[in-house]
Each structure stands twice: as C-alpha cells, then as structure tokens.
C-alpha cells in the first residue's frame, strides 16, 4: 500500500508539473503577446483571469471542484488519480505562468528579432528559440515548483486517492501506531524532496554544459 501511495504521489506530482509547464508556458506567451489587436487582448485577459482564479482559491477547493463539479458536469468518467493530476496541473499552471513570463523576459530580445528576421513566425520563434532558453533560465525555480507539488499532493486524499499520506493514515489507524507512522511519513517526504533536489541540480548542470561563457 505504501509503494502504491508512493507511486501515486510521484506520478501526480510529475505529470501535474508537465501539464502545468504546458499551460504555464501558453499563458505566459498570452500575457506577452503584443496587444494591439483584439485577439491577443482576449488571450491576455484570459490569462489574467486564469491566474487570478487559480491563485486566489485554495488547492483543496480546486481539487474538490474538479472532482465533484467539473468532471460530473462534462460527464466524463476517469479515474480520480487522473482528475487529481489535472487539478494539480491547472493549479501549478497559474504559478508557472509567472515563472515562465520572467524566464521569457530574461531571454535576450535579439533572439526573437533574429528568428523573425529569417522569416519564422512569432509562434515558431517562441516555441523553438525563446521558450527553450527561458526554461533553462527558470530550471531552479521550476524545481522549486516540483518540490511544492510533491508535498502539495498530500491533499489528494480528499478525493479518495491513495497517495503516500493516505496510505500512512490508513496504516496508522489500522495499527494504532500514530507516532511512528506520521514520523516515518515525514521522513519519506523529506527523502523524496532531497532526491528531487539532486535530480534538479543534475539537470541544471547538464543544461548549463552547453553554454560556458
């Protein structure tokens, strides 16, 4: 059961981050679109509303809404784990949006100009030139987001998914060993976060290898 919970925690955190990264990058691009025409302005407004909503309500509430309101309303029946992953993805998208916006702004303006000057479109240049460099710049901050997600997934028990926390809770109430169970649980989370930190450092170093200045 613990292994099962560990698996759920990790999968939800990692896929949540990936979904968040895609949503966040899109929102960041929306926010940075040159906003003279109507369409970009609408996208811009959408991004602002999205970020406000998802940052302004608690994660647990969003999780409950996704599980009890959103999916029943659409009428699709998918496993609660997947619903949870989507909820975490939607939520972290709002935070990653701001991270990515900073990252994109930190990429030299000349990169976009050079892409446009050879005839690539705004989207092509963004996707292939600017965003890859932006991601590299924000890897440390994204790593932070992953760590937050790993810990934050502990609330997924609210929609009856067995993650690490839920597994230990069950174990504790079955064996009445509350003290040991919860202390071990804390240590497991700590170890997970430490491992994540090491992996992020490794990725960071690999990405930096290309551009020693």
């Amino acid at each position: 059961m613990v292994l099962e919970g560990l698996r759920a925690t990790l999968l939800i955190a990692i896929f949540g981050l990936l979904i968040g990264l895609i949503i966040g990058s899109l929102l960041a691009v929306f926010k940075l679109l040159p906003s003279r025409k109507l369409f970009p302005r609408i996208l811009n407004g959408f991004a602002n509303v999205y970020v406000t909503l998802f940052r302004g309500t608690p994660m647990v509430v969003q999780l409950l809404i996704v599980h009890f309101v959103l999916f029943p309303l659409i009428g699709i029946n998918i496993p609660a784990e997947v619903e949870g992953t989507i909820a975490f993805g939607l939520n972290s998208g709002a935070y990653i949006c701001e991270i990515m916006r900073g990252g994109i702004l930190s990429v030299d303006k000349g990169q976009m100009e050079a892409g446009r000057a050879v005839g690539l479109s705004y989207g092509q240049t963004m996707l292939r030139i600017v965003i890859p460099q932006a991601i590299k710049n924000v890897i440390p901050t994204l790593g932070n987001e992953l760590i937050v997600l790993i810990k934050e997934t502990s609330v997924i028990g609210f929609i009856a998914v067995t993650d690490l926390t839920r597994a230990f809770q069950t174990m504790a109430s079955n064996s009445y060993q509350y003290i040991i169970s919860y202390l071990v649980l804390a240590v497991v989370y700590l170890v997970l976060v430490l491992i994540a930190t090491v992996i992020i450092r490794f990725i960071e170093r690999r990405l930096r290898a290309g551009d020693r200045r």
Binding site: G110, P132, K136, D211
Partner: peptide, 9 residues
C-alpha cells in the same frame, strides 16, 4: 545584427 543574435540553444 550588431550583436550577432545567433540562436544560443
């Protein structure tokens, strides 16, 4: 360009 602007990635 003055500052080359080669694609760094």
């Amino acid at each position: 360009f003055q500052h080359f602007n080669l694609f760094n990635n």
